[in-house]
Amino acid sequence: MITKVNVVPATGLKVRTENGARHIRDGGESVTLSSYYRRRIATGDLVKVKTLPKPAKAEPAVSDVAQLEAQETKPEVTLASVLASLDRNDPAQVTEGGKPSVNYLSDVLNRRVTRKEVDAALMEMEA
């Protein structure tokens, strides 16, 4: 029998789904109770809940002018800016070999980042 449970990540944590493709949503989600999720619940990374919190109502649309102003003041997050701010002592941000973690960079930038792209950006930064 397949058992479904509702889980939410513990405060401040990002927990990957069993297949590692993405993170469990901050608002939680329903998952099939497997040994992976049992371990995450046992270690406190995930919290089992009876019902999932309802998503907050969407804010009213902002005018086009306000959107443009917000875009102009928002700093652009680039591969170079993330590389420059890496914490080399954080094992989530760098590999055992000391190279920036492409998984971490992909998560921060919300897109797939390749090792080749990272190496090229580092060489450009050193130039």
Rank of each mutant, 00 (worst) to 15 (best):
M1W: 09
M1G: 15
I2K: 12
T3F: 03
T3H: 11
V5F: 02
N6E: 04
N6T: 08
V7Y: 06
V7K: 04
V8E: 00
P9A: 01
A10L: 04
T11I: 13
G12N: 13
G12P: 15
L13W: 06
K14R: 13
V15T: 12
R16W: 02
R16A: 12
R16E: 15
E18I: 10
E18P: 10
G20C: 13
R22E: 14
H23E: 15
I24S: 07
D26E: 13
G27C: 09
G28F: 00
G28K: 01
S30M: 13
S30K: 09
L33P: 11
S34T: 15
S34P: 08
S35W: 00
Y37A: 01
Y37V: 02
R38W: 01
R40F: 00
R40P: 02
T43H: 06
G44R: 11
G44S: 08
D45N: 15
L46D: 06
L46M: 07
L46F: 06
V47E: 12
V47S: 08
V47G: 00
K48P: 02
K48I: 03
V49E: 04
T51N: 11
L52E: 02
P53Y: 02
P55Q: 09
A56E: 13
A58E: 14
P60A: 04
V62M: 12
V62E: 12
S63T: 15
S63A: 13
V65G: 12
A66F: 05
A66W: 03
A66C: 00
Q67A: 15
Q67S: 12
L68C: 03
L68Y: 10
E69F: 03
A70T: 01
Q71Y: 01
Q71S: 14
E72G: 06
K74D: 11
P75I: 05
P75L: 02
P75N: 08
V77N: 03
V77P: 00
L79N: 14
A80N: 01
S81L: 00
S81Q: 09
L83N: 01
L83M: 02
L83I: 07
A84N: 10
A84D: 13
L86W: 00
L86G: 02
L86Q: 07
D87M: 03
R88S: 07
R88Y: 01
N89I: 06
D90R: 02
P91C: 06
A92I: 06
Q93T: 09
Q93Y: 03
Q93C: 05
V94W: 06
V94S: 05
E96T: 14
E96N: 10
G97Y: 05
G97H: 03
G98M: 08
G98K: 07
G98N: 10
S101G: 10
S101K: 08
L105V: 10
S106H: 09
S106E: 10
V108E: 15
L109E: 07
L109S: 07
R111C: 07
R111K: 15
V113H: 07
T114A: 09
T114H: 05
R115Q: 14
R115H: 05
E117H: 05
E117N: 07
E117C: 04
D119F: 04
D119K: 08
A120E: 13
A121N: 12
L122H: 00
M125C: 04
A127Y: 01
